[in-house]
Design a protein around this nucleic acid. Structure first.
Length: 520
DNA sequence: GAGTTTGAAACT
DNA sequence: CAGTTTCAAACTC
């Protein structure tokens, strides 16, 4: 088999592709290839990636400029390493697994492959896949070196032809991007996920067969794994890393095996709390809230036991994990600390809640007073009308009626806005039994509506509307609008708080960025 | 260390 | 795109 492969190089596809337009295509691919990797090397202002900053020791002289050299894929140096985080180093006998073993953030020896049949020119070879030359590997018939640069380059081309993203980092890390997964560290979080996702079937994603597990990240919605236990809140996963056995490889293997066996051999999760298996759950300010996306993404682990039988769902059978703030796991080498980590304190939240409650009460009181004074004014006005001459009274009454019409029109318009075109709530028949959704709530639920609402609900607009209608509409309706106004005030206050937080975060971010550039 | 298992990559 | 084969790492004994 190994010998027969010799005819694969250079690959047939490549030979066919050596056409007149090939240089341009190649250049485009190279450009894409390079750009695809380099951005990952840019350190985020808040993500400390010591490993990625390390220069990979090159076993051979750097290739010439015209050579298609594969940039070192940083993720393999920085993230593919749960063992180093929570597991004792393997015995010296065991094969080196990673390009740069990291423990305590120090780069260690480069990964040495053991390829026999791929000539180290396919992605099977981890050296090749990570963009490095083989050096001191145990591979046989290796072409992944400077001496065979031509063959190597063509292999790169062939690989890129199959998959333009082949050499891009599999693990996308972002401190503020998608939060489908994250890497947990002792000091903070970095949000990462496997670009392609894993497809594990038997390992429960709790062994290093699983690329996600190996990269020390949780499985995401990109994964199509079965019986996944590599998700937020997984007891099996936690059992691997927590407790006194956290650094014991044998224990981890045992626990993983137990987890896998248990899940596959029985109904597994039937007795487990549903919330445990939930996708799209995240913690916000220390409290668990339901992510709206949960309804979109949500599914439960139980389905994974018969995963192929779920064609109606485009979703993978693994749970998607969402960013949690309070969870902790073992330490790791990449750290992301929220810019707000030192700004938001739990007591601040309590205070904020208290303030909002007080504000709400004050708003209710103010509104009540305003309603009363308005009512009184209207009554006084009526009295004045009655006391005035008939001529004047008729004139005044006309004006008053005109106001009334305007008021009712305004009210109707607003109802139409709230209820939508097919809303029959104008006559109050179909009004929800509970409190109707206020513009404030709608604004909170929909960013697009927020702008509209804020424009429409200026103090003059809403207050005027509330006052007018309170004098004309039944008491219940007036109360509803009072609630709405109350809500508006509270939400506005809350929005102000959030805006301030954003500002603080930005200031802190700029400061950290400045510090970082100063250090470098 | 040999053999087995596993899942990504490659291929059909 | 799904199924199969190849491959090398991970794992077990």
């Amino acid at each position: 088999m190994g010998e027969s492969e010799g005819s694969e190089f250079p690959p047939k596809k490549l030979q066919q592709s050596e056409t007149a337009d090939f240089p341009a295509k190649k250049l485009a691919r190279q450009l894409d290839f390079t750009q695809g990797v380099l951005p990952e090397l840019q350190p985020s202002p808040v993500v400390v990636t010591p490993a990625s900053a390390q220069c990979q020791p090159q076993p051979h002289p750097q290739p010439q400029p015209q050579v298609v050299s594969i940039p070192v894929a940083p993720q393999q140096q920085t993230q593919q390493e749960p063992a180093a985080r929570a597991v004792k180093p393997e015995s010296p006998k065991s094969r080196p697994r990673l390009n740069a073993e990291l423990k305590d953030g120090t780069p260690k020896k480069q990964k040495q492959c053991n390829c026999k049949h791929s000539r180290c020119l396919k992605l099977y070879c981890e050296c090749f896949a990570s963009g490095t030359y083989c050096d001191g590997c145990n591979c046989v018939n290796c072409y992944n070196n400077v001496e065979n640069e031509a063959a190597r380059r063509e292999a790169v081309e062939a690989t890129l032809e199959r998959n333009p993203n082949a050499f891009r980092p599999k693990i996308a890390s972002s401190p503020h991007g998608t939060r489908d997964s994250r890497e947990e560290t002792g000091e903070g979080l970095v949000f990462v996920k496997h670009n392609k996702g894993c497809h594990c079937k038997k390992s429960g994603c709790l062994k290093k067969y699983c690329e996600c597990f190996q990269a020390n990240i949780l499985c995401s919605e990109n994964c199509k794994c079965m019986d996944c236990k590599n998700f937020e809140g997984s007891e099996e996963r936690q059992a691997l890393f927590h407790g006194d056995h956290g650094n014991n490889m044998a224990y981890i293997q045992q626990a993983a095996n137990a987890a896998i066996t248990g899940a596959i051999g029985s109904s597994g999760y039937a007795s487990l709390p549903v919330s445990r298996k939930r996708k799209g759950q995240e913690l916000f300010f220390g409290q668990t809230v339901k992510d709206p996306s949960f309804h979109r993404l949500g599914h439960f682990q139980q389905a994974s036991h018969i995963r192929p039988a779920a064609p109606s769902s485009p979703l993978p059978s693994n749970p998607v994990t969402r960013a949690g703030i309070t969870t902790t796991l073992g330490s790791s080498k990449i750290t992301y600390r929220s810019l707000l980590s030192d700004i938001i304190q739990s007591q601040d939240l309590k205070e904020l809640c208290s303030v909002l409650v007080v504000l709400s009460g004050e708003a209710a009181k103010t509104l009540s007073d305003q309603r009363n004074s308005m009512k009184k004014r209207v009554e006084d006005q009526r009295d004045t009308f009655l006391a005035s001459s008939t001529q004047e009274r008729l004139q005044s009454q006309k004006e008053f009626d005109a106001d009334k019409i305007v008021s009712n029109d305004c009210s109707s318009t607003n109802h139409a806005d709230e209820g939508g075109p097919d809303d029959s709530s104008l006559d109050g028949v179909d009004m929800p039994k509970g409190r109707p959704m206020s513009p404030g709530t709608l604004a909170l639920m929909c960013d697009e509506q927020d702008t509209i609402f804020m424009a429409a609900a200026s103090p003059n607009g809403l207050m005027g509307h509330a006052c007018n209608s309170s004098s004309q509409l039944p008491c219940g309706q007036g109360m509803t609008e009072a609630y709405a106004e109350q809500e508006r005030i509270v939400l506005s206050k809350f929005r102000d708080c959030l805006n301030r937080l954003i500002t603080f975060g930005e200031i802190k971010g700029k400061f950290l960025s400045f510090c970082q550039s100063f250090i470098h």
